[in-house]
Nucleic acid binder design. Structure first.
Lengths: 143, 143
DNA sequence: CTTGTTATTGCAATTAGTTGCAATAACAAG
DNA sequence: CTTGTTATTGCAACTAATTGCAATAACAAG
């Protein structure tokens, strides 16, 4: 288990504690490298930490999201999903077929610069989701 | 109660039904003209419709959102909020003080054009939320 | 290594949101 | 107005998520 990367030792320096629960949840998200729901995360982590509770998973995910170590999103129906904060990106999701496309943060940066100029707000949302139609479904509806 | 506006009669033409529950929920959102949580909406509507249940409020809000008559957002902590879909806008929210600024959809339209050009996705999210710092809090943290 | 402080967890209770199903009531057609 | 079809509701059970509190265990200091 990787427990000595920069983010993690930074946590300790802030007075937060490195618990097995936090490390295991981070590890699961890191190796999954995908969006996971809290209950899926619970299932995966409880295998290694038998005493774990769902309440802890929810609290830990909120905590890690606040600290910027994981990213949250609601990709449509229902539950929120979490993923490790590795690279800054956003999502385009097709409402018709569910197809998802990642776009780099650079594509949006210009917009944030414009927000700052127009309103004085410095935006730093690093994980937005935009809904619409993918190229295939767009072609289908055009017929 | 306004029950004969274009959106509403369009619903009927689609085979959906105009129930007192739907009309009352729309009316509450219309007169509030603000973001409301499902439980707040329930409180306001049940005064006029004693038999109403929360389940119906949730189902109706999902339905109205799918139909594009109301807009959903999660403006930070926890619950989703709903508002009447009157004008197309987005929100900038300060993570520090909670201050909120509305921005017109025009500001973002260029980005959507760029998505279409780069990826073929036609995005139509008309109610995004971006988090960051408002001018005041930005100045405070700079000190 | 031992000890004290207190952040964090587990537990259990609570609140938020969803869903299956039978009863109800919109509304189109006669 | 009456009738039939079926979308929608209420009810109740269920799943998802949050929270208060006492017990636990990180970890800093000695």
């Amino acid at each position: 288990m990787i427990d000595s990367n920069p983010e993690v030792s930074w946590l300790r320096s802030q007075g937060y504690r490195l618990t097995p629960q936090r490390l295991a949840i981070l590890e699961v998200l890191r190796s999954a490298n995908d969006h996971l729901t809290p209950s899926k995360i619970y299932q995966l982590v409880v295998a290694d930490l038998p005493g774990l509770t769902e309440a802890t998973v929810y609290r830990t995910l909120n905590f890690l999201a606040e600290q910027g170590l994981v990213l949250v999103a609601h990709l449509g129906r229902g539950q929120l999903v979490y993923e490790i904060a590795e690279h800054e990106h956003h999502h385009l999701i097709c409402k018709e077929c569910g197809e998802m496309k990642e776009i780099d943060h650079l594509e949006i940066k210009t917009l944030y610069d414009q927000f700052l100029e127009d309103t004085g707000y410095q935006i730093n949302t690093i994980h937005s989701t935009f809904f619409g139609l993918c190229p295939e479904c767009l072609a289908d509806t055009a017929q």
